[in-house]
C-alpha cells in the first residue's frame, strides 16, 4: 500500500523529502568523488586560475615506474592495516570478555578503556609524542633501564611504525570493545551453562559457543578496523609526518596533494589507488566473513 497516495503532490512527497539529503550527499560525496577520479588523469595543482592539463594515464604510469615510493607505501599500508586489525580486535575482544561481568567497578573500567576514543587525533598524537620524547619524556628512562640503550622512538626507522600502530590501537580499542560487548550481551547464558554442564572447558566454551555467537560483531569490527586503518593519515601526520618508514598511502596522498607540493592530480591518483585497495580488501573480507557467519 502506498501511504503517500498515487497522484499529485502526495506521489512526489517522499522524493521531495529525500531531496535535501540527496543534494547534500551529491554535493559533498558524489561530486568530490567524481572530481577526484577526473583529477587523477591531470596535472592539476588545485591553484585557482591554473589549467587542469590532462595527461591521460601518465600519473598511473609514474606510480608504477619502479621507484616512485607508491609500492613501498602500499606495503606499509598493508602491514599497518593487518597489525592494527588483528591486535585491535584481539585486545578489544579480550577487554570485552573481561568487562562483560557485572562486578564492582566494571562500568568505570569500561569507560576508562573507551576514553581514548573521545580524544581527538591531535590530542592523542601530542600526548604520545610527549610521552615518547627522547629528551625529557617519561618513557625514555624506563626504556633505557629495560633495554640498556635509549631510542629516538618516533624518529627511529625501526620503532616508528610499531609505535604508530600501538597508538592507533590505543585510541580505537575501546570502540572495538564496545561492539564486542554488545555482541556478548546477546549470547544467552543458558547456552554457556549447558556447555559447562556438558563438561566444556573455558577455552572450549569460548571457541565453540561464544565466538560463533558474536560472529556479526567480529564482522563489523574487522571491517571497520580494516577500512579505518587503510585510510589512516591523521595520526601518522601528527606523530611522524610520514617519515621513518611510516608513509602509508593516505599519508602519501595528503603530502602530495596538500603538503606544499600542490600536486592535486597526482594526489588524486594515489587516492584512487587507495580507494581500489580498500574496495578489494573490503569485498574479499566481507565475502569471507559473511560466509563464515552463515556457516557458524
Amino acid at each position: 500500500m502506498n501511504v503517500f497516495g498515487k497522484k499529485g503532490f502526495k506521489k512526489w512527497m517522499p522524493l521531495l523529502g529525500l531531496l535535501p539529503a540527496i543534494i547534500v550527499f551529491g554535493a559533498f560525496k558524489i561530486y568530490p568523488s567524481i572530481m577526484t577520479f577526473i583529477y587523477s588523469f591531470t596535472q592539476y595543482s588545485g591553484i585557482p586560475g591554473t589549467p587542469l592539463h590532462f595527461v591521460g594515464l601518465e600519473n598511473y604510469k609514474m606510480a608504477f615506474s619502479g621507484f616512485s615510493g607508491i609500492g613501498k607505501a602500499i606495503r606499509i599500508t598493508i602491514i599497518f592495516a593487518l597489525c592494527v586489525t588483528l591486535l585491535q580486535n584481539a585486545l578489544g575482544l579480550f577487554a570485552a570478555l573481561v568487562f562483560n561481568k557485572k562486578t564492582r567497578g566494571t562500568v568505570f573500567y569500561r569507560s576508562l578503556v573507551f576514553l581514548p576514543v573521545v580524544l581527538s587525533v591531535v590530542v592523542t598524537g601530542l600526548i604520545w609524542s610527549l610521552l615518547f620524547s627522547p629528551i625529557g619524556g617519561p618513557i625514555e628512562p624506563i626504556w633505557k633501564a629495560v633495554f640498556g640503550h635509549s631510542s629516538s622512538f618516533f624518529g627511529s626507522n625501526t620503532l616508528a611504525l610499531p609505535l604508530v600502530i600501538f597508538v592507533q590501537i590505543w585510541q580505537n580499542a575501546g570502540f572495538t570493545m564496545v561492539v564486542y560487548l554488545a555482541g556478548l550481551q546477546t549470547v544467552p547464558t543458558e547456552l554457556l551453562e549447558s556447555a559447562q554442564l556438558d563438561g566444556a572447558s573455558r577455552w572450549q566454551r569460548f571457541r565453540h559457543v561464544l565466538f560463533p555467537m558474536i560472529a556479526a560483531s567480529t564482522t563489523v569490527n574487522v571491517l571497520l578496523c580494516v577500512i579505518g586503518a587503510l585510510g589512516t593519515y591523521d595520526l601518522i601526520y601528527v606523530l611522524t609526518g610520514g617519515q621513518f618508514g611510516t608513509m602509508t598511502l593516505g599519508m602519501d596522498m595528503f603530502n602530495t596533494a596538500f603538503g606544499g607540493s600542490n600536486q592535486l592530480g597526482y594526489g588524486s591518483m594515489i587516492q584512487m589507488l587507495q580507494f581500489a585497495l580498500v574496495l578489494i580488501v573490503t569485498l574479499i573480507l566481507q565475502w569471507y566473513l559473511r560466509r563464515r557467519e552463515v556457516e557458524l
Partner: peptide
C-alpha cells in the same frame, strides 16, 4: 648531535 636527535622535533631546539 644531541642523543636520539632523530626523535627530537625542531620546535623546542632553539629553547633547549
Amino acid at each position: 648531535f644531541e642523543p636520539n636527535a632523530f626523535g627530537e622535533p625542531y620546535a623546542p631546539t632553539p629553547g633547549l
